[in-house]
C-alpha cells in the first residue's frame, strides 16, 4: 500500500437474495486515492494468476460473442430434423446438436451475446443509478438520506430472485422486461454500498479541509469521494454481475426472458431439459456456460478485492 495514513471503515453489507452475502467489508478510506494506488492495484492484479486466467476466459467469450456473426459458424437458427440431438464430437457438429438439430457450438457462442448482455447491462445501469442515489444520500445526509435509504430498505424485503421474477412476471415475458427487472433488483444494493462509503467519508477531516478551502460540492465529490468509492463498488459490482448472469438466465429458464427461437443460455437449458433422457450431456452445456461465466466474474472480484485491499 503506497499510503500509510489510510484508516479502515467497516461497511455493513446486507446483500439481498442469492448475492454472495458477507457480513461486512473493510474499506480503506481516508485519502483520495492517488494514481500510484491504481498502478499498485494493476501490478498486483497482473501477478494474480487466477484473475488473469479468468479475465482471459471472459475476454475470449466476449470476443466470440461480438464476432459471432462473422465467424465461420453454422447458422444457429437452422433446424435440421434429421440431425436431432447428435452427441458431442459428431463430425460437423463439434458439440452436437439440440432438440431441433441446430448446431450447439454455434448456439452457445451466439447465446453468449444475449446472456452476457443480460448480466452486464443491468449491473452497469444499476451502477449509474445506484451510484447517483448513494452519493446523493451519503453526501447530503439528513432527510434526503432517510428517504432514499428507507425506500431502499423496502426493496431489501424481497429475495433478489423473487423480486426479479415478480417484476418480470408483472411486465410480461421478453428481454427488455427482464433487463428492466434485473436492473431494479440491483439498484438498492449498489445504493447501499455507495451510501455507506460516502457517509463514512463525509465526516473525515480532509473533506472538511477541502470545503474550508473553497472547493465546490461537485469537485469534492469528483476528486475526494469518487476515487474512494470506486474501489469497493467495482469489487461489489463484479460479484453482482456473476449473480445477474445466473438470475437473467434463470428468468429465461422459466420463460420470462428470451423467447424461442432466440439463442440464450437459460432458454436453451430450458428447452433441452425435455431431452435429458435422450441426450443428457448435451442438455448440460448451456448451464455449464452460465456456471463458468458466473464463476469467472466471482473469481475476478476476489482478485480485485485483494488487489485493492477491500476485505469482506
Amino acid at each position: 500500500m503506497s499510503n500509510s495514513e489510510q484508516s479502515t471503515v467497516r461497511v455493513s453489507l446486507d446483500t439481498p437474495g442469492a448475492v454472495g452475502s458477507a457480513p461486512g467489508m473493510d474499506v480503506p478510506v481516508g485519502y483520495a486515492q492517488a494514481r500510484s494506488y491504481w498502478r499498485g492495484v494493476f501490478h498486483r492484479v497482473l501477478r494474480d494468476r487466477v484473475t488473469i486466467g479468468c479475465t482471459l476466459v471472459l475476454g475470449l467469450l466476449v470476443f466470440l460473442a461480438i464476432a459471432a456473426p462473422v465467424l465461420p459458424l453454422i447458422d444457429p437458427d437452422v433446424a435440421n430434423s434429421g440431425d436431432r440431438l447428435l452427441p458431442i464430437g459428431s463430425p460437423g457438429h463439434l458439440l452436437g446438436t439440440d432438440e431441433l438439430g441446430r448446431d450447439m457450438l454455434s448456439r452457445l457462442i451466439h447465446g453468449a451475446r444475449l446472456s452476457l448482455l443480460m448480466g452486464v447491462g443491468p449491473v452497469a445501469v444499476a451502477l449509474l443509478v445506484g451510484g447517483v442515489l448513494g452519493l446523493t444520500a451519503g453526501y447530503l445526509g439528513g432527510r434526503t438520506n432517510m428517504i432514499i435509504m428507507r425506500i431502499t430498505d423496502v426493496f431489501y424485503a424481497f429475495p433478489s430472485i423473487l423480486l426479479a421474477v415478480a417484476i418480470a412476471g408483472a411486465l410480461g415475458a421478453g428481454i427488455t422486461n427482464a433487463l428492466v427487472a434485473i436492473t431494479i433488483v440491483f439498484i438498492p444494493p449498489i445504493t447501499r454500498v455507495v451510501e455507506s462509503v460516502t457517509t463514512q467519508l463525509r465526516s473525515m477531516d480532509f473533506i472538511d479541509a477541502a470545503r474550508a478551502s473553497g472547493a465546490s460540492t461537485f469537485s469534492i465529490i469528483r476528486t475526494h469521494i469518487l476515487g474512494n468509492v470506486l474501489g469497493p463498488v467495482l469489487v461489489y459490482a463484479t460479484v453482482l454481475v456473476s449473480v445477474a448472469i445466473v438470475i437473467a438466465a434463470g428468468l429465461s429458464f422459466i420463460g420470462l426472458g428470451a423467447s424461442p427461437p432466440e439463442a440464450e443460455w437459460g432458454l436453451m437449458l430450458n428447452t433441452l431439459r425435455q431431452s435429458i433422457f435422450l441426450a443428457p450431456w448435451i442438455s448440460l452445456l448451456p448451464g455449464l456456460m452460465i456456471f463458468i461465466t458466473s464463476m469467472c466474474f466471482n473469481l475476478i472480484s476476489d482478485g480485485l478485492r485483494s488487489a485493492m485491499d477491500v476485505r469482506y
Partner: peptide, 12 residues
C-alpha cells in the same frame, strides 16, 4: 463454485 453455480442447473 457453489456461490457461482446456477442452482437450477445443479438441479438438472
Amino acid at each position: 463454485a457453489g456461490v457461482s453455480m446456477p442452482h437450477y442447473w445443479l438441479a438438472i
